[in-house]
Amino acid sequence: MNNNLRNWIIFSTVVLLTGLVLSQQIDRKSNHPSDSSVTAKVMRTENSESPKIGHTAPPFSLTGIDGKSYELIKMRPKPVILNFWASWCGPCQDEAATFVKLNKQFGDRIQILAINLTAADSVKSAQQFARTYGFTFPVLLDTDGRIAARYKIRAIPSTMFIDGQGIISDVVLGALSWDTLHNRALSLLKD
């Protein structure tokens, strides 16, 4: 079997397993009685806030690996790039350096939030990943899969570009090359 076919099979398997794990987490959380108020709240906000281009990004608050709390709405008026990832994801590893490079270039004008799908990963692995790749931007922990479910994340990496008014302007599924990430960041700054 040639390397391209083997790599494609591995990548496809990882994407499928990620979807299955996230689906199980979502199903488990939505069937839990104490989560009914959260589910109702999410359903009420989906009319005006949706993880779709042209809609307001759904608000959230998550704790980072630094122990601080981060709220999406408090990032305004700075544009935000949300990157959903896991430490075991090969394409996430491939694109990590591009986010570090982008943060060095635009970190004063664009906020990068790296959201680890901790429900399918671990805090320790997320911390190690951030150290290994030199992340200096916030690494947030989605420990129960609630934010991934709210943003309808089915494959990783997934990246959302949010303008200074909180509107999703672009969504990319899969690893980002430097050119693609850089060009989309420049578009965010023009909005």
Rank of each mutant, 00 (worst) to 15 (best):
M160T: 04
L188Y: 12
R146P: 09
E95L: 01
I168R: 07
T180S: 04
L62D: 02
L20M: 09
A114F: 03
P91V: 10
L181Y: 00
P79C: 10
T180P: 00
I81K: 06
A120R: 02
G166W: 10
G166K: 11
L17N: 06
L140S: 03
L113F: 05
E46L: 11
Q127I: 15
S158M: 05
V139W: 03
L189V: 04
N31Q: 12
F11P: 15
T143G: 11
P58C: 06
N116H: 10
D142E: 01
W8I: 13
D66T: 10
R154L: 08
S48P: 04
N47V: 15
I147N: 06
H32L: 14
E71W: 02
E71T: 06
L82N: 08
K104C: 07
H55T: 15
V123P: 13
S36K: 14
E46A: 09
V80N: 04
L141R: 11
R6T: 07
S12T: 14
R6P: 04
K29S: 07
I168A: 05
C92Y: 01
H55C: 15
P33G: 15
E46P: 07
Q127V: 14
K41L: 09
T45G: 15
K74C: 12
L17S: 04
V80R: 05
G90V: 10
N2W: 11
